[in-house]
Design a protein around this nucleic acid. Structure first.
Ligand SMILES: [Mn+2]
Ligand SMILES: [Mn+2]
Ligand SMILES: [Mn+2]
Ligand SMILES: [Mn+2]
Lengths: 216, 216
DNA sequence: TATTATTTTTAGACTTGTCTAAAAAATTAC
DNA sequence: GTAATTTTTTAGACAAGTCTAAAAATAATA
């Protein structure tokens, strides 16, 4: 159907589309760690397959067909991540690269059975929603800790940064999904956030507060 | 490490090596459903990487490094097949193409954990032995029903032909792994084999008897 | 052994996906 | 509103893997 490279481009465009309506060549190049000229070549190909809307110099958006493909890749990625963590006992910072390969296994029957085998999980290990087999995706209902006022709180439910270093840092601090936190204070000098969690008090930087999501 | 194409060639050469010591270009081309000229190109590449012993016009054999890679691919293929049948409830004639993709997922840590998750199975759904994580592979101890004399018998333990049509035929006849059979008669005209299984008597052709393996 | 026939390799071309360097278009600055 | 800057596209090249057609080596045959 679609090549591995095509699928990766569609996924990248889909993710960038949540930020801005129209996605630029350079944005895609940065996200995929490739050159703008390579992106242009691929955009023409995806346009020929009517997976994207593209006119030269005008940026791109996914067509309905393209969005369907992208969501399916994301479904596979997140289900495989769930499998790796829940069934094979990997840690949440170890699974991304494996899922990056597994998401390209073509069979939809396989992924639907895997979904069933795991009891139709709703979120991946990083708190991201898993699209169902019809491509329905729960809208994002999480917000960063940095959006909370003093004395507000909630349950840690996701991350915005998926890098190993960040995930390992969170785990070391005990800031894992499911934990309840309350904002005790926001230090005005540098926006450091002081949190209450269990019976501990801990400080996190503005940067961390921006990338740690809670359900309220 | 190695590309998908390289891995597929190494696996094909490994399998052909069990029949003849040295493998020819045309044998590989037939097995991979490709052209001899394509094979020659790839042989030079594999030779440069010292994964095969190759001198022009002389046929090829795997080096130790090449054999290690091949066995690892086969390990992955068979473990994924086992997973698909035992955990996701696929039938034994449905899993080959999916395993053909999954065998190229690179992580060895993943496959070792999958192995552990399933309780270190010894054979795949077709009765083929699964190499362990050190590349140790049980030697083939099965033989075709066609090698049995009248009144001899054994337990159905594997197949030589992995095609869907053959596997579906076997299932329809109830000739599945684990069943005990006895040879009642061999019809001399065309070598049809008359079998006793449970309380039934059934006839299979020479062709089928050649491709159905038993442990004695 | 000389002549066929078969197998294997080379030569040259094509596709996919990538790159660098240069040109063209769109933005931003003055 | 022209000039400088940034963004995007084109031109041309390369590696991987494949193909067809032709040449070279090996094997079979008479
Ligand atoms: Mn991931
Ligand atoms: Mn994730
Ligand atoms: Mn198989
Ligand atoms: Mn098998």
């Amino acid at each position: 159907m679609n090549t591995l490279a095509e699928e990766n481009y569609l996924k990248a465009i889909y993710k960038l589309s949540s930020l801005t309506e129209s996605v630029s060549t350079n944005q895609i190049a940065a996200a995929m760690e490739t050159k703008a000229s390579s992106v242009t070549d691929m955009l023409r190909k995806l346009s020929d397959k009517t997976l994207i809307n593209y006119t030269r110099y005008q940026g791109v958006s996914l067509t309905e067909a393209g969005e369907k493909v992208a969501i399916n890749i994301i479904r596979k990625h997140r289900l495989w991540e769930y499998f790796l963590v829940e069934k094979l006992n990997f840690k949440w910072d170890e699974v991304h690269d494996m899922a990056e390969e597994l998401e390209h296994i073509s069979s939809n029957e396989l992924i639907d059975r895997l979904d069933e085998f795991m009891g139709f999980p709703k979120r991946d290990p990083h708190g991201d929603p898993i699209p169902d087999c019809n491509g329905q995706l729960k809208i994002n209902d999480l917000k960063p800790i940095s959006a909370l006022a003093v004395s507000a709180g909630g349950i840690i439910s996701g991350v915005r940064d998926h890098s190993s270093v960040f995930l390992q840092y969170l785990e070391k601090q005990g800031l894992i999904i499911g934990k309840k936190i309350t904002v005790k204070e926001i230090i005005s000098y540098d926006n450091t956030v002081v949190l209450q969690m269990d019976n501990k008090v801990l400080q996190i930087s503005r940067e961390v507060a921006n990338n740690l999501l809670i359900a309220i």
